Amino acid sequence: MAIIDKKGILHGPVDNIVYRYYRGMQIAQMKPTKVKQTVASKEASLEFGLAASAAASIRAVFSRVFKGNDGGMANRLTAVTLKSIKTATHKRRGERDVHDGDPDMFSGFQFNLNSQVEDCLRVKPQVQFNDDGKLFVHIPAFSAKDLRGPGADHFVIRFLAVSFNFKSSIASYLSSKEIKIKQGEGFEGAEIEILESLPPGRLVLLGMFIHAYKCDHFDGYTRINNKTWSPGGIIGGWQAPAQEEPEANSEREKEIAAVGDVPMDPLPYSGHEILKKFKDLWAKQDKKLQDKIKEKPSVPDIDEELPVGDFSI
């Protein structure tokens, strides 16, 4: 029930409309109605959550090297991760994750649209494998004019290869290589070996980041990257064929310490819980279907008795 105040303004609900007063305006709003979701819409929502959880873990692992994003980076990375998962059309929702999708979807992702890598470095590094399966990055020669950024004394171009196994909830910093360039100088070009091979069963992402440093004679070098200028992106993505990995136990913990894996328990990955929700959803749907079958009435018998013996037609 709505009431009218001394100023003649309505407050409260009338049928399915709610009246209120805000900043000198009379506002009428429809009451929110409960929307009944279909199984397909629930599955789509769960898969979006799966992509968002995986993207959050990717951001957390790369956060050590990207310094300053444009604010919309998290949503863009979630969209790219979901797009990659959806390429696995040979599996249905709830039976697929990032490992089943196309890892090349991550190539070209920018952590900061305010300063994209190709706008700040006017040459394009080439990523390639040799005959032995080693991963290299070839950087063409460039002059000082090809590296654009704020007033800095030094620039550092960093390459970081990271691997993920979302099925085992672990990640690893595989390789970190860098090139230091003094302000006003160019680069003669180089071919840098990143990895000897891809670890089995892992999603491997290769990031490239440009950091700028200013020298203070009292405090030394200070990184001056910020939201306005902080180029960084993913320049390659690969999914290595899987091999069976040991289950989580004391031996697995020793293996993690030995190879540098980072358990993703402290990271925001909840994919296993989301995949379990898929199974719960399907089980609930199957139960409803079985209940409908039980409630279905049997086919009635013929009402009239059939004649015995021959009869005329």
Rank of each mutant, 00 (worst) to 15 (best):
D5Q: 06
G8D: 00
H11W: 14
V14H: 11
I17H: 07
G24N: 13
G24C: 09
Q26K: 06
K31C: 12
A40P: 00
K42M: 13
E43W: 08
A44Y: 05
L50G: 06
I58C: 07
A60D: 14
F62V: 05
N69R: 09
N69C: 06
N75K: 10
R76M: 09
R76A: 08
T78I: 03
T89I: 02
K91Y: 05
G94W: 07
H99D: 09
G101Y: 05
M105D: 03
F106V: 07
F106H: 04
G108D: 05
G108H: 07
Q110A: 10
S115M: 03
S115C: 06
L121W: 02
R122S: 03
V137I: 13
S143M: 12
A144R: 14
A144Q: 12
R148K: 15
G149K: 05
I157Y: 03
F159V: 02
L160A: 09
S163Q: 12
S168P: 01
S172P: 02
Y173G: 02
Y173Q: 12
S176G: 04
E178H: 13
I181K: 08
A190F: 00
E193D: 01
I194T: 08
L198I: 07
P200E: 08
P200G: 01
G201P: 13
L205M: 10
M208F: 01
M208T: 01
M208P: 00
I210P: 02
C215V: 03
D216R: 01
F218E: 13
T222C: 00
T222A: 01
T228A: 15
I235R: 03
G236C: 01
Q239N: 10
A240W: 12
P241H: 09
S250F: 11
E251M: 07
E253C: 03
K254E: 12
E255A: 09
I256N: 14
A257F: 10
A258H: 14
M264V: 08
S270T: 07
L275M: 10
F278W: 15
K279S: 09
L281V: 11
L281M: 14
K296G: 01
E304R: 14
P307C: 14
V308K: 15
